[in-house]
């Protein structure tokens, strides 16, 4: 008589046995005993007493964890140091860089003003025909330029510790002069047509 193999018995235990194995098991006391022995072995394995480690390994795990944390902090520490140095550099050197940049910008806007003065001189308003509204607009722009010139005179020729304020005034002057140029040139061109 053919009996169930161990594979058959394990499959039956897992509820996956073949139809033949299931039918055979119903009529075979030897195979039923095998299945029972299988269950008992597994139950005994599960019931084996738990063993405890002879040595406490936590101190080693803890030491490794703390060493890892120190390494990580060290890495962060270096990064923090580098970041702090960068911030300190900005605090110390930024005013110097900023002042240098502002001085260069001041020189540039002064040159722009000088160029615009020359160009405006070529458009003598008295020699050209212009409308009343254009003349009024030009007069208003000239008044605002005069106000800025007054402010520049008040501040004096010496560049202050922070030349940014001077740069701003000169930039406003350039802007007004461009508008004045636009008024004079466009009207002159129009009249010239």
């Amino acid at each position: 008589m053919m009996h169930c193999t161990m594979e058959d018995l394990l499959a039956l235990r897992a509820g996956e046995g073949t139809t033949w194995a299931r039918r055979h098991l119903e009529g075979c006391a030897a195979c039923r005993a095998e299945v029972e022995a299988l269950y008992q072995r597994v139950a005994q394995l599960k019931a084996l007493p738990a063993r405890r480690p002879a040595r406490d390994r936590w101190p080693a795990v803890r030491a490794a964890l703390l060493a890892e944390r120190r390494r990580r902090r060290g890495r962060w520490g270096l990064w923090s140091l580098a970041a702090a140095a960068a911030v300190a550099g900005l605090i110390v050197f930024r005013p110097i860089w900023t002042n240098r940049l502002d001085a260069a910008e001041l020189a540039r806007v002064k040159r722009q003003c000088a160029t615009l003065e020359r160009d405006l001189g070529r458009y003598d308003p008295d020699a050209r025909v212009t409308s009343g509204s254009a003349a009024a607009l030009a007069a208003a722009l000239e008044d605002r330029i005069a106000l800025i010139d007054g402010e520049l005179t008040r501040l004096g020729p010496q560049t202050p510790a922070r030349p940014a304020a001077l740069v701003k005034l000169w930039q406003q002057r350039v802007d007004l002069m461009r508008q004045l140029m636009s008024v004079r040139v466009s009207r002159a061109t129009y009249v010239g047509l």
Binding site: R51, P53, V61, A64, L65
Partner: peptide, 30 residues
């Protein structure tokens, strides 16, 4: 620690190996 050691001991048989596995396991856990 006991269930981990017990599992490792059943698989490895050697108490020293099982303790090493216990330590490696918890290094990974933490």
């Amino acid at each position: 620690e006991t269930p981990v050691y017990h599992l490792a001991l059943r698989l490895l048989r050697s108490p020293e190996d099982a303790e090493d596995v216990l330590q490696e396991t918890f290094l990974e856990v933490v």
